[in-house]
C-alpha cells in the first residue's frame, strides 16, 4: 500500500529527521545552554575582574584626582562632583583599559568629564580652554579657593603672591606640575595642550616668579 507506505516512510523519514533534528536540537540546546552558562560565568568573572581592576587601578588615585579636580574647578563641591563623574566613567570603561599608566588614563577621563560638564553648563562650545578657565576663576569669589590658605612663612607668602600674580594659563601649569605633582605629559593631557607648551609655560612662569622674588629681595638669583 504505497499510499500508506509512503506516508509511513515519510513519517519514518520525518521521524528520523525529527529525531535527528531533535538530537541536533538537543545538541544545539546543550551548546546554547553551555554558551549561556559559559557566558554567564564569563560575565561574572569579567565583573569580578572589573571590580578587582577598579580597586587596583582607580581607588589609589582618588587623592590626586581630587587635587587636579580642585585645580580645574576651583571649588570643593564641583571638584567632588567631577571626581564622582570620573569614577563612574572609569568604572564603565575599565574593560577597555589595558592596565598601563592608570593615573594618565584617569586624568584623561577627568579631563573629558570636565569638558563635558562645561559644555552642559554653557551652551557655547568651549573653544578656548584658557579663556574658560579664566572665566571659571573669575566667577569664583575666592572664599572657597583652597589654595588661599594662611601661609605663615614669609618666603612661602612671597611665593604664593608670585604664584597668584601669574596669568591663568601659566598658573594652571604650575599648579598641576609643582603643586599637584603631575608629570609634564599628565599636565598636557589634563589641559589638552602639547607637552612642549607645558614646558615653555612652566619655564616662563618660573622666570616670572623668580624675578618677582628677586625684586622683593627673597632670592639672589632672579634671571634665567
Amino acid at each position: 500500500m504505497p499510499a500508506i507506505c509512503i506516508p509511513g516512510n515519510v513519517g519514518a523519514s520525518n521521524s528520523v529527521e525529527r529525531s535527528g533534528l531533535t538530537r541536533a536540537g538537543n545538541s544545539q540546546a546543550a551548546v546554547t545552554g553551555f554558551v549561556h552558562v559559559f557566558r554567564g560565568e564569563m560575565t561574572i568573572n569579567q565583573d569580578r575582574d572589573r571590580v578587582a581592576e577598579f580597586e587596583q587601578h582607580v581607588v589609589p588615585y582618588l587623592d590626586i584626582l581630587l587635587r587636579v579636580a580642585l585645580a580645574l574647578t576651583r571649588n570643593y563641591a564641583d571638584a567632588e562632583d567631577l571626581v564622582q563623574d570620573t569614577l563612574l566613567r572609569a568604572y564603565r570603561g575599565i574593560d577597555r583599559f589595558d592596565g598601563r599608566y592608570p593615573r594618565a588614563w584617569l586624568l584623561t577621563i577627568l579631563r573629558r568629564a570636565h569638558i563635558n560638564r562645561n559644555r552642559r553648563q554653557r551652551p557655547v562650545l568651549v573653544a578656548d580652554q584658557d579663556a574658560a578657565l579664566r572665566e571659571l576663576a573669575a566667577t569664583s569669589d575666592g572664599s572657597d579657593d583652597p589654595e588661599r590658605l594662611v601661609v605663615a612663612n614669609k618666603f612661602d607668602g612671597a611665593v604664593a603672591d608670585a604664584f597668584y600674580a601669574l596669568p591663568e594659563s601659566f598658573r594652571q601649569v604650575v599648579e598641576l606640575v609643582d603643586i599637584s605633582g603631575l608629570g609634564y605629559q599628565e599636565a598636557a593631557t589634563v589641559l589638552s595642550i602639547p607637552i612642549g607648551t607645558v614646558m615653555s609655560r612652566l619655564h616662563r612662569a618660573r622666570i616670572r616668579m623668580k624675578k618677582r622674588l628677586f625684586n622683593d629681595g627673597y632670592t639672589r638669583e632672579g634671571k634665567r
Binding site: D63, F155, G181
Partner: peptide, 18 residues
C-alpha cells in the same frame, strides 16, 4: 637651588584635601 626652593615652597601651597 632657587628653582628647587621655589618648587618646595609651591608644594607647601597644596590645598589640604578634605
Amino acid at each position: 637651588e632657587t628653582i628647587a626652593e621655589l618648587k618646595s615652597s609651591l608644594r607647601r601651597l597644596a590645598p589640604t584635601v578634605d
